[in-house]
Every structure is written in C-alpha cells, then in structure tokens.
Design a binder for these strands. Sequence first.
RNA 1: GGCGCUGUACCCAAGUGGUAAGGGGCAGGUCUGCAAAACCUUUAUUCAUCGGUUCGAAUCCGAUCGGCGCCUCCA
Length: 476
Amino acid sequence: MPLKIYNTLTRKVEELIPGGIRKNTPEEYPPVTIYSCGPTVYSYAHIGNFRTFISNDFLRRYLKFRGFRVNHAMNITDVDDKTIKGSQQEGVTLAEYTKKYTGIFYEDLKTLNIEPVEHNPKATESVDEMINILKRIDENGILYEKDGSLYFNISKFPDYGKLSLLDKREIKSGVSFDADEYEKEDVRDFALWKAPKANEPFWETPYGPGRPGWHIECSAMIRKIFGTTIDIHTGGVDLVFPHHENEIAQSEAAYGEKFVRHWIHTEHLLVDGAKMSKSAGNFYTLRDLLARGYSPRSIRYLLMSAHYKKQLNFTLEGITQADQALERIDNFILRLNDRKNTSGENPGIENICSALIHEFIETVDNDLNISGGLGVFFDFIHKINTLISEDKVSGRDSEIVFETLKKIDHVFGFIFAVSDETEDADRERIDLLVNERIEAKKNKQFARADEIRELLKSEGVILEDTKDGTRWKRKK
RNA sequence: GGCGCUGUACCCAAGUGGUAAGGGGCAGGUCUGCAAAACCUUUAUUCAUCGGUUCGAAUCCGAUCGGCGCCUCCA
C-alpha cells in the first residue's frame, strides 16, 4: 500500500513518488524534498499559522515514520511591507526587528514540539538567487520594467492559472486588482521586484535598486536549496492564489522545468465558527492561550487532530476535550507503569502491537488521515487496558507496549513529549503522605486517611486506590 | 457573481458502493471502609432535505436548503 496524498494542482489523490521515479521501498527513494511557506516575522504568529505548521510537521514526521528520508525547508520572510512598516514604527533596523520575531517564532515552534527542519532560509539572504531568476525571466522575454519596478508578463506565460483554476474564475466587479500602488500593463501581472521608496531598505541589482516582490522570495529559496523540481510544496489555502500561482509562473518561466510535483494546502483554522480577526475578538496567539492556562500539548493535539484539508473550528471547549483525550493516554501510561514488576509473558501483546502499526499505516497512508489514525490508536489503548484489567500484561509485555508507543509518538509528538510535566518537586513528601494513608487505612483509622486525601486534593493531587495499591497524579 | 471547503449522535470527528471508527459527555457496572480516580459496558436502523442509479448508497448522479473561506496583505 503506497502513501497517497491529495494534490491541489491535479485535484486528485496521488501516490507520493519522490524524485519522480518509482522505487520498491521508501528507503530506496531519494530524500523527499519539501518546501513549506513559513511566517512573515512582523509579529507573534497566531494559532491559525500554527495549524499549518503543525500539519507540515505531521507530514514530515509521518514520512520519516514510513521510512522516507526528508530534506525539508521552511522559509522566514524577513522583508515585506509589514516588516518594513513595523521596524519603522519601532525605530529599529529591519534586521533587528525581524530577528526579534524570528526568535519568538522558533520558541513557539519548540513549545508546540514542532520538529526543526533541515533548512530555514531567509529572504534577505537569497537576493543573489532572486537576481538570477530575474535575469532568466528577462532573457525569456517575460519581464518588463515600469517606473523602476519589474513585472511578470502573464500574457507570455500560457500556463498561468493552472493551480488556482484562474480561467474558471470570474473577477468580482468592484474588486481592485491594483491595490499595491504600482503601475502594471495588465492588472493581473505581478511585481517581481519593487522600486525603492524613501526610507525603505533596498538592494542593488543589474536592474537598479529595489526590494523583492513577495512571490519571488520563495522561488529563489527553493532554487537555492534544491536546485530543481521539488517533491512537495506546502502552505495555507489562502496562498494558492496568487502566491503559489506566481511562484509556479516565475520558476517555470525562468527554468523551463516542472517546479513542484505535489502541492499540499492546509485549510484554515476558524475560531468560534468564523475567521480569526483582531476586530472580532477571536484572535489568539499561542502565548495568549498559554497565559490562560492551556497546555501546549493540548493545543498541539487539537490542531493536529482534524484532517488538514478540512477547516478546523477552534474553540476553548475544544482544547478541554483535547486535554481529556490526552488524559486517557496518560492514565494508560500510568497503568502500564504499574505492571513493571509483574512477571510472565503474553504472546498476544506482540501481535496487538504489530497490528497497531499496520493498521495505523494503512489508515494514515490514505491522504494523511490523522483522525483515523487516532481512532486506531485509541482502539489499541482500549485493547491493552482490557488485558491489564484481566492481569494479562506483565512487565516484559509492558516494555513491548512502551516501544510501540514510542514509535507512534515519533508521528504524534504528544504521547510522551511533555515539556510541561517535569519531575514533581514534592514527590518525596507526597509519597510519604500516601504511605502514611495506606498505614492508616490498614489500621482502620479512616478519619486520618480521609484527612490526608483531602489535604493532597487541596494541593491538586489526586489519589487513585486500585486493587494493586494507591497511585497519585497531578490534577490538570 | 466565480472558485474552494463543508453539513455524520448532546459536543468534536473518521468513514467515498457492502450495511455507521475513535475522543469527550450522559447512563449503568467493576473496584473501594466510603468516596474519588481509573477501567469496562451501553449510547446513530441512521449520515441536512427531496428525488434518481444500483441487488445494495453516508458514500455515485440531480435538485433544494444551510455553514465557512478565498477572489485585496493573509497559514
């Protein structure tokens, strides 16, 4: 069973064939080249941004889990209207300004347990490659200059519009296509290079000074890192038009070869059923949510748990539900830990574990069906839980289960990766109290036992009396 | 107006021709000194509505109604 993913360009679910030449196993393929449109570092990224980045992270992790090697780049857009404006308002250089928000962005990625990727190119460090592309487009007669800016001539690139089905679109009357204050021959031509304005940073080129148009940044970084056709290009749906359409036009017009094999677009996150916006009061950054006491792990779970091609309606209630799902996983791990010192061996465990891996792959291979994968995973927990209740899981068995959980967590990143669950400083004291309570119960001093239970409860520690003894956990 | 996503139980959410996964919640049960927690069991003759194709449809086709997004910077 091959891994299949929906391709925005062809509008079909297609097998992923890295390098374009079919091989027998994932390991035989060349590394999967992936480019993800990253953030513009002008402010804190919001949770909608992180939905896309988590969906990219899931793709990357799953490919590795399946045995593919990956070579993944995510850019940092560190020059555009917003970053320039922001730096001017704060009275700092563009570089200082973007450095601050780039740092914050990386911190947030780490908080959400999003894996670092192999390359993080910056637009400002890729200007040489942009000039190369400008030259090639110029040589091919598709570039024109007007008032110091350079434009892409859509009429000379017949393939223009194939990603966004532009020929099928009709322009709503009243929508201005000329909103960026630059003169163009055709309203749909787009700026490759923008003439410098007063007090704005600029770079020297053979075509004169100026700064990059937004779209050419990505084309240049992809060329610089990967050189040729890449396997996967990802981004949010809003980037289909015009950003990705323009990337295709530039790169293919410049180099005459296929730009990208698979386009993957993550649908938008809604908040309380509507588009997130500051004016609507439903705009959240990651840090807003953390300040309200929600855990990064729950947020990761929630953002990950729905299929990438469907809009995800984010609610605070949803985080709570995600948190409860995670608690089921945590309780499972606690129960598993309790089996550590039991002896014996249940041959059925190994079968259940390998069945989980097989079913998981079979499910998720179908266009990254994460919800289905979660279903398979919770089924597995249920099966093992039942065996634990029947006393049919030994210490050795539990180790096999743990190994399986670790494998799956390479994809999920929320089973064990719990940065917010550090070693409890009060562990010793709590253990002592718990033991005192066990003694009290033995001696039928129930008043004292209840007193200890209440004391710990007031500190947020929950005791669980099981038939094998008492264990405790922190209330979330 | 065009394009795209979408409508599955109280909430979240899989399932694209073979008879409704999973999580939360609710309700029972087990365990317990009592509780709590945990675990177990149960919870949609039905998939927005209407019609069609088919031996068979949530899944395909047509119509209708509804939610959301994009078409302007945007993950």
